[in-house]
Design a binder for these strands. Structure first.
Length: 207
DNA sequence: TGCCAGGCCCTCTTTAGGGCCTT
């Protein structure tokens, strides 16, 4: 891990893609991200990218991203080079991070770039900290926590922004419910891996 | 020909199956 990795800066990111699996030939079509410094958004990144083939009608309807929009976009390599620069030195957060990590790894592998941060998953943390939530879908959690939003979902920057707000809600929960002052990224990673049954006892020891 | 994601998590579990999440 890089010595320049920032302790207080994370990038919350979200991909829109042509499908669920890069192993099955799916590609990224949009990346959106916000950079958080001590919980405050200090930078944003949003780019459509042309995967080189037409997206299905399902994806066009699901995301609102059309083939006409993608025809005018830069190719994936160009966008991902810029995004690799954007995330340099930062840890990463995503909702269901294993999905976004697979696409990030696949797209950066194509252009032979790498990143120095590690991922934390807001879905896994949410399942442990707000076990009463009826669902841990991003949209459902936005409603559950009454998170401000512009009504846009399944677009990369909009989803990254509400995920960043959710991340902050989860950090605030650690402070308010467990008296954990300044919970950090590595604690969130530990929470994500902890058995649900022992999370309460673990957090009470942290406070 | 027919199949086709992958990881987490629960339970009627561990020699398994299925729902939840992401697009």
């Amino acid at each position: 891990m890089s010595l320049t990795l920032s302790a207080n800066t994370v990038v919350v990111l979200d991909f829109e893609t042509t499908g669920l699996s890069p192993n099955q030939g799916d590609r990224a079509i949009e990346i959106g991200a916000v950079k958080l410094e001590n919980g405050v958004i200090v930078d944003r990144f949003q780019k459509l990218m042309n995967p080189g083939f037409r997206v299905s009608s399902f994806i066009a309807n699901y995301t609102g991203i059309t083939n006409a929009m993608l025809a005018e976009a830069d190719d994936c390599a160009t966008v991902m080079h810029n995004f690799a620069d954007f995330i340099q030195g930062c840890n990463l957060v995503a909702h269901n991070a294993s999905f976004d990590q697979r696409f990030l790894d696949a797209e950066l592998d194509v252009i032979q770039r790498d990143y120095d941060g590690t991922f934390a998953c807001s879905l896994l943390v949410s399942r442990r900290l707000t076990q009463d939530a009826p669902s841990h879908k991003l949209g459902e959690l936005v409603a559950y926590h009454q998170i401000d939003n512009d009504g846009v979902f399944h677009r990369a920057l909009a989803d990254a922004e509400v995920t960043a707000s959710l991340w902050q809600v989860l950090l605030d929960t650690l402070q308010s419910d467990y008296s954990i002052t300044n919970p950090d990224f590595s604690l969130m990673q530990k929470i994500a891996k902890m058995p649900k049954g022992s999370i309460d006892q673990f957090l009470k020891k942290q406070g």
